[in-house]
Design a protein around this nucleic acid. Structure first.
Lengths: 217, 217
DNA sequence: TGTACATCAGTGAACGCGCGTTCACTGATGTAC
DNA sequence: TGTACATCAGTGAACGCGCGTTCACTGATGTAC
């Protein structure tokens, strides 16, 4: 045995099959949405029998939970990478749109209509916080005009969600607006509500992002 | 026969049953989301057999389509009523939030994650335009500062969605922002993404609406 | 007012389907001596 | 190096379920003469 974390062939194989199951699952979600995800259909597509999947996942719920986790993780990674290479709020906004367009159903799995009854695993809140931290970091340097709505005061008093991040109220406000405004444009675009309206969603998104990056007024 | 539009007892009965089917359908959607809607379950709840529903709807798809239509119609009515009693953008924003909170799954049926493959009936675009017109009317009187992002120019050149509404580019921009920004806050709130974050979604919504009502900068 | 007929709401059985999941098993792969 | 054993991936049959939808029918309600 040489050193640590040796991986046996069997472990490698398991990891590969697990990965392929997830891939097929994403394909299926892309094709017919998360509610239509079927274990048997995945197995069929992989040329194996349904029960075989139970070697890899405890059941349908666990698979979906894993996909949700991966989706959060994926966005967090994208954001961290962007930040690491010097992206500001504007850069994060572009990264977000690229990530969303890359796989709309993945975006919806995270930010879309919740299935009544289903609850995401607790550990994704950690990843969600990680995402928020990156945004808060980027929201900090920019100084915008004062808030006239009383929102800053409210946020100053309710900053649990920011953890111990040293952002000032204006940055909290900007980070939140980054989230809600971009989601507003993005989710309507991905849901197809802009089709046939004439304008280019990218321009709308860009304008919204511009106003955020320079200052939320 | 007295006058016009006489309604026979049978017609009245039919209308009642149809209405009850829809009610139960909404209850079911509220409980387990639109994808989980089942004709048999509705029939069971009404104390009748499954096939009986086929007297009232051609099938599951037609029922859902009807619900989508009703949802759009409902929002359009709310907006028209608000506008008729003198509501400005701020009033429309409040009406929108009330309508959404009143039945979150109805909101999601209109603005939520689209089911790949399903297409809303064409005639809802008429209702959607009606909704947009009310917003455009309200967005008109307010004069805000100039746009610095080039969005106004773009919208001036792509105003198909506004029909022949005489709104100027700034109003087009404000109307669109009304839609995307409020949807951003509202959909995240309804999906539960703000729970546990500390702040009050109503305050965030109110602040966003304030900035819209006074001027989109 | 009464009778013959037409309309139509609702039933029950049935079809075919796909689902998630369990279980006892076969057969291949890896491990220990 | 060879043999005995343990591990474990995958199968096939089965269970129970609910779904949407069709079909031939019963029985009540309404209509025409």
């Amino acid at each position: 045995m040489v050193g640590k974390a040796e991986e046996t062939p069997r472990e490698r194989y398991r990891a590969q099959v697990r990965a392929e199951i997830k891939e097929r699952a994403w394909e299926q979600i892309a094709a017919s949405g998360a509610p239509g995800l079927s274990l048997n259909a995945i197995a069929r597509q992989m040329g194996m029998s349904g029960p075989a999947l139970y070697r890899y996942f405890a059941g349908r719920d666990e698979l979906i939970t894993e996909l949700v986790r991966d989706a959060y993780r994926s966005l967090a990674d994208v954001f961290r990478a962007a930040a690491a290479s010097g992206a500001d709020l504007d850069g994060l906004g572009r990264a977000l749109r690229a990530w969303a367009l890359d796989d709309p159903q993945r975006y919806f799995l995270v930010y879309g209509t919740p299935v009544p009854g289903y609850h995401a695993p607790d550990d994704v809140t950690t990843t969600a916080r990680e995402i928020m931290t990156v945004v808060l970091d980027a929201a900090r340097p920019v100084a915008g005009p004062a808030d006239t709505t009383g929102l800053d005061d409210h946020l100053a008093e309710h900053r649990e969600w920011a953890g111990d991040h040293p952002a000032d109220p204006a940055a909290l406000r900007r980070a939140l607006s980054f989230w809600t405004r971009l989601h507003g444009v993005l989710s309507l675009e991905l849901a197809g509500h802009f089709t046939g309206m004439g304008f280019d969603p990218a321009v709308l998104y860009g304008a919204e992002l511009d106003r955020l990056a320079h200052a939320v007024r």
